[in-house]
Every structure is written in structure tokens, then in C-alpha cells.
Amino acid sequence: MNQKTDRQTRGSLLWRSLGPVLPPARPAETIRAASGALIATALLALSFAMAAPNLPLPASLTLIAPFGASAVLLFAVPNSPLAQPWSALVGNVLAALIGVAVVKVFDDPNLRIVVALGLTIPMTILARAVHPPAGAVAMTAALSPELVDTLGFGFAAAPVGLGTLILIVLAMVWARLSGRHYPFRVYHAPGPFGTADAPPTERLGLSESELTAILDSYRQSLNLGVEDLARLIGAAEIQAATHRTGPLTAADIMSRDLVTVSPETSLDEVAGIFRRHGFTSLPVVGPEMRFFGVIFQIHLIRQAREDAFRLETRFAAAMRRLTGSPGEGGAKRAGDIMAVANPRATPTTPVAALLPQLADGHCDAVPVLSKGRIVGIVTRTDMIAALARQSLTA
């Protein structure tokens, strides 16, 4: 490579490095984050307005600017280590205490700002509570000596501590309502099935200390947690495995001789089919094999459990009622408890695309559809058999 080409390459890389580094966001995720932050900020303002008579300062001074920065982290990037409850609450409160102390020691405004920020960064790092808005909290105190004169070190408790705590609680509620995880998932926490085993895609053979060492060696401990690193490595392994599946499609491995039920099939009959065939899933279809959904064995168990709680009876009695005659009331039909939002495929869908869906533990079978009609189903057993054949020919 000559010098001119080398300079052009470096120039191109520089311009690219100045552009966006985040991938395009999905519209649904954008709406989720924006809506959560909007609702949380409104509720925070309402909370302070209601508490204003008990606070020794105007309500206009309680909703400080750093809360907006905290809301961005808690609702837009809830998986970030910088957005976790310890980081947010301890970081903001510690910064507030530092800011107030600096105001009491120094008179020069510019010096107060520099010292407050200069102390906040190392102190939050040492406290393992790095939270970028904490820098703004320290500067808010340094720029507002009248606020410090009014509240003193109480500024750290309210509005800073109280407001941050309210945002954290609202972020937890919003994450649960919108299907996200907050606080950060802890490594070795119970898996999706309530056992000590990690999800199948995260069983890497690497210990928590080894994963932590990887993060430290690449200086990523502030950007990723151990749990996220395990998920990313697991996803990469699954994706790499898809490269070895060759040109196989769903049509090559799917089960074609299907046993199906209609939405009107009684759950007693559904349970009987599960017993006779040993299936774990049954497609629910209409005339001409038009696909409606899938009913899994676990759906029967969950419905019986919910009925047992609702009717204050034993599980066995609830199951008998659930699978009894249609005249006894309750959810007695397949259409009442079938799943309609599970992954789907077409006959030409590559096996590589099905592998992640069947490996994560949440999906037992993927129906294969052609023009809205079911033509087959790919189960985990089908996938294991296909991968076994591939390994023999590799």
C-alpha cells in the first residue's frame, strides 16, 4: 500500500469514526424508552409538587436537570451498568454531598465547579457507583450556593436521593410492564425456568471470574455486565453453529404427518392426544389446515394452576375441572389457551434461522406455514436429529 492510499484509508476511517456507532433502533424500542421516561418524569414532577409543602424550597427547584440525564439511562439503556440502582442512587447522592461540601469550602464559582466535578469522578469510581448524571448533580450544587444555604447537606436526601429513588422504582415497574429486565440480571441468578441452570444459550463453560477477567482485560467493565457478556458469547456461539448447518431448510427436517386439533377441541381430548402420542405441542387449525396457533402441554398446567388459585381449590381438582366435560364451565377448549404469537417459518426458512429460536428454551416447536396453512412443524427433536446428521457428515 503506497503512502497516498494509506492516508486515504486513515482519512476514511476517521470520518467513519465520527459518525453514529449505535445500530438503528427499532421503532417499538424507541417508543418504549421515550414513553417510560416521559411518564416517569411526569410522575416525579407530580410527586415533588405534592411534597412541596413539606420541603424547604420551591417546587421549581426540586426537579433538577440531572434527573433528565438519569431518566435517559434508566429507560433508554436499562441494561447498562451505569444505569443500575446502586450506580444511580449512590452516585447521585455522593455527588450531591461532594457538591455541598465544595460550596462550603470555596467561594470562587469556577473553582467550585472544577473541584466538585474533579472529586465526583474518582469518588464514584471508588464507590463502584459511576453514573454520568452524578457529574451534573455535583455541578448543580456548585452553581447554586443559595440552594446549599437553604438545604445544606439535606440537598443529598431531597431532592437528589428522593428523586433518584422514585426514578429507579418507576424504571423497575416500567421494565416489567414492557418486557425488559431492570435491575441488571445477575450472573448465576435463577434461569427462565426457575432453576439454578443458566439459559441453554448461556452455558458457556466459563466461570463468573473468567468472564469478569475478559471484561477487565478489554476495559469494558463500565459498559457490560457479566450476564450480558455471557448472553452475547452464547448468541455468537449459536450464530456460528448456524454457519455449519449448510443449505438445509425447514422443509428438509420438518415433521409432515401432523396431528392437529381445532379451536373447539375439548381440553380433555387434547390431554388424551398428549398422552397417546407423547407430544409436547399440538397445532390448532381450522378448515383446510389454516393455522390458528399452538397449544403446549405447559399451557394445560398453567391454566390449571391459575384456576386453582382463582377458585381456591387444589391443583388436581382444577385439572379435572379443566379437562372435564364442556358443560362444567371454565376454559374447556383448545382455542382458549393456545399460543398465537410463537415464531413461525416457511418451507424455505433456513435451519440456521430456526436454531436460535429453538435453543433459547422458550419455544418447543416452530410451525411451518405456506400461505397461512400449516404444512409441517419443526420440533427440538427434529433439530437435534438434523444437527446429529450434519455432525456425521462434517
Rank of each mutant, 00 (worst) to 15 (best):
R380I: 13
P263S: 11
S144P: 11
F184R: 15
A394N: 00
P326M: 07
W86D: 00
A88T: 08
Q84C: 05
F67K: 05
G272F: 08
L18H: 15
A37F: 04
A76N: 02
Y218S: 12
E264T: 15
M123Y: 10
L267E: 06
L14P: 00
A52F: 01
A52W: 02
R26K: 10
T9M: 14
A240W: 02
G99P: 06
L94A: 09
S35T: 15
N110S: 12
H243A: 11
M123R: 11
S70T: 01
A129T: 03
A88Y: 08
A317Y: 03
G329H: 07
R7G: 00
N342T: 14
I298W: 06
I384W: 13
E288R: 15
L151G: 04
A334D: 03
A271C: 01
D360K: 10
V173M: 07
L89W: 03
I168P: 01
T393M: 12
L358N: 06
G225S: 09
I337F: 02
A33Y: 10
I125D: 06
F75S: 00
I374F: 13
G330D: 10
L13A: 15
L117Y: 12
L126P: 11
A316M: 02
E202N: 11
I214L: 12
G330C: 01
V284G: 07
H188S: 12
L267D: 02
G225I: 07
A76C: 08
N92F: 11
R231P: 00
V130N: 11
P20F: 13
L63T: 01
P20Q: 12
Y187T: 13
V160W: 07
P56G: 13
F291Q: 00
G324E: 03
F274Q: 01
E264Q: 15
G330M: 08
